[in-house]
Design a protein around this nucleic acid. Structure first.
Lengths: 231, 231
DNA sequence: TTCTATATATGATATATATCATGGTATTTA
DNA sequence: TAAATACCATGATATATATCATATATAGAA
């Protein structure tokens, strides 16, 4: 069950500068009246493909995945979002229903703003409109670029890529707990689960990484970096 | 050399409803003073990756490709745009330089609006801001979805897909002149040029299509459709 | 024109990746 | 607690695709 949290006023929120730094006091009040913070446990679904879009969501804490539940019980993971990312930004302005599902990979806190209130602010504040467009555009560009980057690589390169992604961009640490199953890695970088497992084992045998279940330690990040580039 | 064309006032432009239908008379005047129509010959480059973005472009006539000139002299084609598409929409709001190059696959007419003027209109017209966000978001979603769709398919399915794309979405005709080389098809649907040629030949031998150089005729569109879905 | 580069074409071969099979382990569910 | 289900692991095999080689046709450049 998602749990509603007590949250501070938008004016004093530490995430204010994320997008709302230039709003007027009145606009921040409107925002505040139409937002709530929600806690999702690991594994819980935040929103489902096809549901009506009524709110604009961004991630305050945790980690979530955006994905399309596809036919033969194999999802397609579009991207993994981290705190400060706008997780519902995709498609909220283009369609009335979500194009992707979102679920929590770790316990997560989401700030949810009523779409109507957000639209009202956009309507009346052009600078804010341009800022949100920039943010949106950048997110999309990033997803598209990453997709091409991954597809150009061989399987070893893709695994190296995703390990570096978690290590560098998510946990800022050479050692971390994988927030996803091997299967989810497969769904994210477009390969089979067997090959994800196989190549992780290869990396272990080659002394590039240390594996203990979901716990991964990068023993040779430079080598991994070069596999990512060349493999 | 791109050639500047004489163009009608925005108020009477047949493309007005595309995005500018709800602008005020004053806004349309501003738009008109800051736009020009440019003709590009087949093969000419409209904008280059890395160049400063100074204008917002949409396609009035012709066909263009968006692509990233990549390292080992093999481009990556992101998408093919047709009339009424906003060809510079990608990344113009996120970065100050183009993230993709654009070139004309056929003789094309582009309407080019000064970015500053467009931003001024967005600033002052919230409804317009939301409309342009919707359009942008839809374009991005479309590109991402198509990418996944193509990647899920085997090579035969990809070729079928691209033939149906030209036949149905671009030319609305079972018979058409391919606007791209086999190599460009390869760059668009991520396979080798040899295999593009090989599979086109297979389709010809199977009686699914008729080939005469760049001229293609779909003899059995239903069969092609099923190859696209299943292959 | 002749030379050179590019596009089309096809076959043989190598290689990357998926698929199938099987077993163990952990984690839900009953 | 047991049963069922998902997850992890690895090997053998099949298959899809890339790579290499070669040839012809076509278009551009000198």
């Amino acid at each position: 069950m998602p749990e509603f949290l007590f949250s501070s006023h938008c004016k004093t929120c530490t995430y204010k500068d994320l997008l709302f730094g230039n709003l007027s006091s009145k606009e921040l009040d409107l925002l505040n009246e139409n937002k709530k913070e929600i806690m999702f446990k690991k594994g819980e679904i935040i929103s489902r493909e096809g549901e009506d879009i009524t709110s604009f969501l961004y991630l305050k804490q945790g980690l979530v995945k955006l994905y399309t539940p596809s036919l033969n019980n194999k999802d397609q993971i579009i991207s993994i979002a981290k705190p400060r990312d706008f997780i519902s930004l995709l498609s909220i302005f283009s369609f009335s229903t979500y194009k992707y599902s979102i679920s929590a990979l770790e316990d997560s806190v989401v700030c949810s703003v009523e779409m109507d209130a957000l639209k009202k602010i956009i309507q009346n504040n052009g600078t804010f409109a341009i800022e949100i467009m920039q943010k949106m555009s950048r997110m999309y560009d990033d997803i598209i670029e990453k997709r091409f980057e991954i597809n150009r690589k061989h399987l070893r390169g893709r695994i190296a890529y995703i390990l570096i992604f978690f290590s560098t961009h998510i946990y800022q640490n050479d050692e971390f707990e994988l927030p996803v199953s091997r299967r989810e890695i497969a769904e994210l970088i477009e390969m089979t689960t067997e090959n994800v497992i196989r190549i992780l084992s290869e990396f272990r045998k080659d002394g590039i990484i240390k594996i203990d279940g979901k716990r991964i330690k990068l023993l040779n990040p430079e080598r991994l970096e070069s596999v990512c580039k060349l493999g």
